[in-house]
């Protein structure tokens, strides 16, 4: 096995390669842009509820949509789900989401109070 010979407790010295540095700089830019966008989305969501100008029938689906966009940004930009080699991670997270939907829906709706 590969780890025999590499000491996992030795402090790592040295620099990342030029390629990695470029990639990190690009990553940082994307992350700052999405952070700004997330702040923007959050603010919009709060305003759409706080102001009386927007009817709630529109505001609620709207803020839920904003929440979903923000979460996708978190997952893909901050948590790097978009990187190569994360196929299983993607599969499992989205399976979780897929199962979460009927879970939430049934606990919310199928309580025997309103019949469907």
């Amino acid at each position: 096995m590969a780890q025999h010979g590499i000491d996992p407790t030795a402090p790592l010295t040295g620099e990342p390669t030029k390629k990695t540095k470029r990639k990190l700089a690009k990553e940082l830019r994307t992350q700052l842009i999405s952070f700004t966008f997330m702040i923007f989305l959050t603010t919009i969501a709060f305003i759409s509820i706080a102001s009386d100008a927007i009817p709630t029938g529109f505001a609620i689906p709207f803020i839920l949509l904003l929440a979903c966009i923000q979460v996708v940004l978190q997952l893909y930009v901050f948590m790097h789900l978009n990187e190569r080699g994360n196929g299983w991670q993607n599969a499992m997270i989205w399976t979780g989401v897929l199962i979460a939907i009927p879970t939430v829906a049934s606990l919310m709706l199928l309580l025997g109070i309103v019949k469907f």
């Binding site: 997270i93 979460a100 939907i101 879970t103």
Partner: peptide, 21 residues
Amino acid sequence: FWLFLGGETILFASLFGTYLG
């Protein structure tokens, strides 16, 4: 750890569902 987070999704979905109900 990612798999664990997948499980946490359901954990919180159960709580959200309960709250919404």
